[in-house]
Write a protein that binds this DNA or RNA. Structure first.
Lengths: 357, 357
DNA sequence: GGACTTTAGCAACGCTGTTGCGTTAGTTGT
DNA sequence: ACAACTAACGCAACAGCGTTGCTAAAGTCC
């Protein structure tokens, strides 16, 4: 029965509204979603039943019966996210509102194996759940933001850049078995952009998260959902050529954005290179938001933000009309881990796609 | 009542199947769509009623009752598409299957005005409908593939490149009034990629149509639908920088793909530049299909195709896994006009998006 | 205190896809 | 020839979604 899709879709719409505003009420939800007030009543009743929202008093207008007001219950659902880098595992426990409620970082051995990662992950998840906080019943699952290339559809790591033991590793399956929880594996940059999307709501429809952290990548959020591409390998933004016959890149080509960036003398010059790349992205994709992230970038966050803003202002034709918001990642260095958690929440409580994403 | 969305969605799914295969039958449709056979029966009954499909005999299996077979009725619906260039107006009359059934090209005066275009368009549409063929009752509407930048959501041309009289012209509204038909206005490149998508079916999910025709642009088809971007201005692919401090471009920057391309000595060198740009697109977006189009490109079609294929094969890391199909536009120089027509069909008979695209 | 305004909720309804089961149109076996 | 079997088909009852119509409730305003 596909009526369930309609129900889930409308419930997710209301949850999304509750996430992006302090409170919601029947009338405004009806107006925004196009549902009738009566239908909204039914949706709200179901969400109350599930504990996802709670009454929050009444709003007294000039006249008429006061409207019942509701708000999201952030504590009602949780998820854990993991950010795997070449040196460390970073965990974040996130609530339904997208707030990071706890975190942990542990070192990973050089050239760690899948089994070593799973052990650290398992220990970390157990520790987070042991801390006074969320009953594990309300845990939606675990998300992993991983180094690519990987096949997101099957949760298999193809061969992670510069990690010797990671070839065709079915990470999602292994982690599900080890943790006994639903696991969502995705590229780190995609997890990152999901963090911003989940926290910002419906206005965040076309965006890129630029990540500079031992490599340059981009997480893409297009038309209101993550863009992963035909082989779920989108986002290799650092390996786009910006200087024909430029300096050689680790990927074998010449003049890649990453190679030119890494050779820039100082942060300002490096940031200017990213600026050119961002303008290229804007020209191609017409994005509304650029989010800057990654440990190497955030070390000089303001330098990068100013350089990208300057590039956008001076290099994009019709900059007046093609408004773009450039920001640093709201959650800083924890963005990827938090985003991995929010991918789990998004899969369950986000607005679904009839095709299943 | 939002049940109508479910109905339309499933009908569109079945129509899409009927487009991409010679025949359809209840069992296979049920398997692919996930609907129950009984539900498919109801959908098929509705489509028969509308005349969109027709019985096409039976399929005798080894045992059991033979299955009823159906096929699309291409003549059941039509649309007209228009491709506006700086010098000419090209029209295409297209049937539901995406086949071009008639066409016409007329010259446009230099620096033509909106009114001059509407006159030519109106005359051309009337002429196409007068020819023995489709009853105008079955005409879904008129699509216009226009020079950007434009606001697709409102159908307003902001200021078309190098056309003096085109600033903030509400083309969709003007054309609707003049023609008395539904009008869909979009960027030429987006119309072009829709032509390929409509004709190729479900396997064509992440793709770009590269158009070289007094400028370089890209129409993007991402995740199974057109990508237009935050201000519906995506696709300015020619104005991405591939050579820092390269030759100056008409847009004011230096080293744009378009500038470098136009300065290449011969078609092969020019094609190689496009090859670099395509690889950049693939790295960023991970596309499965690249379609080459545009008058200037198709003049040396095979040169471009070979150059792009070579670039893809030699410059994309993991080319074995990241399979990409490179083709010339199946409808050649008529791709944009035909695609504009198919955008109208796609809006009415394509698989809808709950958010309304 | 009555008129008015706005919100809320019950009940009947329409329409979607689903389920259960009998029917139909073939082939296979004796 | 005829029963047994198979696979597709379709009628009828049903479940669940949002909608519609109407009544009740909880305020303000005069």
């Amino acid at each position: 029965m596909h009526l369930a899709f309609l129900r889930d879709y409308h419930e997710a719409q209301v949850i999304a509204l509750a996430r992006s505003r302090p409170t919601i009420e029947r009338g405004t939800v009806a107006e925004i979603t196009g549902l009738t007030p009566q239908a909204v009543s039914k949706v709200i009743a179901r969400l109350l039943e599930e504990g996802l929202i709670a009454p929050a008093g009444v709003r007294r207008a000039a006249m008429g019966k006061p409207a019942a007001v509701y708000q999201l219950v952030p504590d009602s659902r949780w998820a854990i996210g993991a950010h795997v880098t070449r040196r460390a595992l970073r965990l974040a426990l996130t609530d339904l509102a997208g707030t990071v409620r706890a975190g942990a970082t542990t070192a990973l051995p050089p050239d760690f194996t899948p089994d070593q990662l799973l052990s650290e992950l398992s220990a970390g998840v157990t520790a987070l759940l042991a801390s006074p906080g969320p009953p594990s019943r309300r845990l939606a699952g675990v998300g992993i933001g991983m180094i690519g290339p990987l096949d997101q559809a099957t949760g298999t790591v193809r061969d992670a850049h510069r990690l010797r033991h990671w070839h065709d590793i079915p990470l999602a399956a292994l982690a599900t078995e080890r943790l006994g929880l639903p696991v969502h594996v995705d590229k780190d940059v995609t997890a990152g952009v999901t963090a911003e999307a989940w926290r910002r709501g419906a206005g965040f429809r076309d965006a890129a998260l630029i990540m500079v952290e031992s490599g340059v990548g981009a997480g893409l959020w297009l038309g209101g959902s993550a863009h992963r591409g035909a082989h779920t390998n989108a986002g290799e933004f650092g390996h786009t050529v910006v200087q024909l016959d430029g300096p050689p890149c680790v990927c074998g080509r010449r003049g890649c954005l990453e190679a030119v960036h890494d050779r820039a003398g100082d942060p300002a010059a490096a940031a200017a290179v990213i600026g050119v790349g961002v303008v290229n992205l804007l020209q191609t994709l017409d994005l509304g938001h650029i989010v800057l992230a990654g440990a190497d970038l955030l070390e000089h966050g303001d330098v990068y933000r100013r350089a990208v803003e300057h590039a956008v202002r001076t290099q994009v034709p019709r900059a007046d009309w093609l408004s773009v918001e450039v920001t640093l990642a709201g959650l800083g260095a924890g963005t990827i881990a938090a985003g991995a958690a929010m991918q789990v929440l998004n899969a369950r409580y986000g607005v679904p796609d009839p095709a299943g994403r």
